[in-house]
Design a protein around this nucleic acid. Structure first.
Lengths: 150, 150
DNA sequence: TATTGTTATACTCTATAACTATA
DNA sequence: TATAGTTATAGAGTATAACAATA
């Protein structure tokens, strides 16, 4: 019931949706923009974002298992199966039996090489991301997000 | 290669993944937490988040069309079809021909009633969301997110 | 010619139930 | 008894191509 004095203007300039000031809406939108950008930077490595996350996690945690990766990254056990199969098919990880039930996930030499590329790309990406935020707000983003998660 | 002095502790306390300080990772995680919470609050109304967004948008913009909703909410034209069909089947919206090509989307009386519930729930939700952020960081979240989007 | 609404389709992501083998 | 890995499956979300009708 507002802005009925706007007809031919609608196409040239997008009117702000009634959602553009809502933190929740902005949060989703920012996450989508960020994910799309990161995904396109990882695409040349033939890796999805979740693949890169797994490589980083596996490199950091000695003898981590599939279930543990799932817990850390909030991925269902069942959904880990095709994920790890893909990384294994790409010769980036290998499995080593811990006992007859559990398998440790390790990076292969190729996986270690790829990990270096991932570190370079994500490091650069995160830096650019933070640099886009005006300096007076910059330091507040991480604690604010952590408060929302906690 | 860190923290191999940690065996039985792994289950009781989750070790921080090497991702938990990265703004990009936090952004995705915060968005997921927020979406899950909002979705569960809208569930009693039998609405998805995107449904609620459409109701808010349609109420705000006189004679908006399906294509325009799609542009505003970044939804593909083709994906608007089942979305609006669902809202129409629930008697929340109706279509009115603008010409022989375009249709205006309007709220039905039922749709207006449901919109009031949506406003109550989302308003409460956004308030609680912001209240969870420590006061010294609070005002910085929206501008920081807008900078990431812009 | 460009746009609207639509159909069909496919891929990703996420979630659940159930099974087996083992701890 | 609980857990690890797995299979199968289903529901969302998202993307593209193509078409008819109309602006």
């Amino acid at each position: 019931m507002v802005n009925n004095n706007m007809t031919s203007d609608e196409n040239s300039r997008q009117k702000a949706a009634p959602l553009d000031d809502l933190p929740g809406y902005l949060l989703r939108k920012a996450a989508r923009v960020m994910m799309a950008e990161l995904a396109s930077r990882l695409a040349p490595l033939d890796l999805r974002i979740v693949d890169a996350s797994v490589l980083l996690l596996v490199a950091d945690r000695e003898d981590i298992t599939s279930s543990e990766i799932g817990k850390a990254l909030e991925i269902q056990r069942a959904n880990m199966v095709p994920l790890l199969a893909r990384l294994e098919a790409a010769s980036l990880i290998e499995r080593k039996a811990l006992d007859r039930k559990s398998q440790a996930i390790h990076l292969t030499p190729t996986g270690h090489d790829r990990l270096q590329d991932v570190r370079t790309i994500t490091g650069q990406f995160e830096n650019e991301l933070v640099d886009r935020i005006p300096v007076e707000h910059r330091a507040h983003l991480v604690p604010a997000l952590q408060a929302l998660i906690g």
